[in-house]
Amino acid sequence: MSAVADRHVVADAEAKSASAKPSLFSRALPAWAQALPLALVFLVFFLVPLALTVMVSFWDYTEYSLVPAFTLRSYVEMFEGCYDKLPDLCVTLKTYLSTLKFCISVWLISLGVGFFIAYFLAFHVRTTTMQVALFLVCTVPFWTSNVIRTISWIPLLGRNGLVNSTLVKAGIINTPIEWLIFSDFSVIVALVHLYTLFMIVPIFNSMMRIDRALLEAARDSGASGWQTIWNVVIPLSKPGIVIGSIFVITIVMGDFVTVGVMGGQQIASVGKVINTQMGALQFPPAAANSVILLVAVLFIIAALTKLVDIRKEL
């Protein structure tokens, strides 16, 4: 988590030095120098490409070239039929709705699962060695390549897979369940499997900062276990929960590989639409889609940070 923490510190430093009066410039110099490397990295690898993306989204295009002339074509085409076809949803809305649906379900599940794993790691595992060992276990999903990982779901969840054959042999079902793979269900399972770790780490980090005396105080004041969790642990873990949520939501909103493979390429996602357009060399519409996606994600993050002032809490 230190990376994120650093980033906020730097952002703070930047904000402060920016608002400082010129006379303070010489005193602020070391701070500027410290902030400079990361600021440069951000400028070159984030702000410039982002500005280019926004710019290209307003360009025109042909099969093989970009035409640098200002046009709203990409945006207009993206929302074509979104109003006049109502109540039928247009492709863009349908796609966003489907992406949002995955986002919310994965977020809720990974929050629930992640919180209790972090809780277990922080409060029930005593030694640091054991904590590190268990953390490594949490990273197991990342030990293989994406392709192998997604392909291996078929032998597990497929029509003749392990789950189905076990259920059939046990006599619980007669015919294999079809929706175990290439369905909304399998997409959610795979996403939760992958991204819960991003929830565990920040929440764990927050929990480790909780003064253990507070828990004892709660117990001494007669709080039950659940009351302690609800009134002490959760409020104090909020920054971790929000950071973890931001991770999971932004990753799931942009994911198209997992949705593609686990959904049998039959489920739409915003990332997939962008990918298809890039494949057809249609960069401006792809850029326009990215810009809208970015705005949507920023709105969600803004809403989340309204709930908790992360800077204050850290």
Partner: peptide, 25 residues
């Protein structure tokens, strides 16, 4: 056909098509 559930999955990667066929999906 897609809405009627005709397709099990679509594939984009060569290996995916091998897997779909070999697993009997």
């Amino acid at each position: 056909a897609k809405k009627a559930g005709q397709f099990r999955a679509f594939w984009k990667d060569f290996n995916e098509s091998v897997n779909l066929m070999a697993s009997g999906e």
